[in-house]
Amino acid sequence: MRNVGIIMRRELASYFATPLAYIYILIFLVLANVFTFYFGGFYEAGQADLGAFFRFVPFLFLFLIPAVAMKLWAEERKSGSIELLMTQPLTLWDAVLGKFLAAWIFTGIALALTFPLWITVNYLGKPDNGAIVAAYLGSLLLAGGFLAIGSCTSAITRNQVVAFIVGVVACFALVLAGFPPVLDVFRSWAPGALVDAVASLSLLTHFQSIQKGVIDLRDLLYFAMLIGLFLYATAITLELRKAD
């Protein structure tokens, strides 16, 4: 556990060692506000809630999270520093977890910086703050899921661009699985159970159910398993390919 903390702190510090982290957060905040106010119809809706923001979070994350995750392992392998890291007295799991947590905290910071939106709705009206907290939690879990997938795709290759593209595609597939038009395609021919199975695989389905303010154990479990599964896949991938 001590090693996880050491790795995590180093990673976090390295995010902020270059202007990249600040640019990234800036882009995230600009896009979040553009989506909320222009496309989300924040004012037009006439409701004091953050639905306009959270509706777009999955699509915002779809591109921005793989961008955070792409360097996790691809860069270590490209520069060879993975050899330095893995010959220190730590387990592969320490490193996988430490790096993942650092990236998760980083996206958490970006997400937390959208707080002016929250203040705005509270200024304009009386929103259901419980639901907003739940939606933030859901967004954080969604980010965790995407990051775990991105961590895995980053471990596959030494090329960050490849890691990014494969990460976006993988995340997109998991989001799409819960998108109504896609489910409709299944619904036209597949039995109801299969449609439900596909829908239950989707990040979107679980995210939306938390976003509504209902924190169901099944949704939490889904994200925990998704993250666990992809981090495990990351560790296996690294074990096989770290020296290539």
């Binding site: 180093r10 520069s79 520093s81 330095l84 010959t87 007295p89």
Partner: peptide
């Protein structure tokens, strides 16, 4: 592995480091 790595000091080929630190 952890005990073995603990008694070794290792310089990998090309001495890769974390450049941004």
């Amino acid at each position: 592995p952890l005990q073995a790595k603990g008694v070794i000091g290792y310089l990998p080929e090309g001495a890769p480091l974390y450049g941004e630190m």
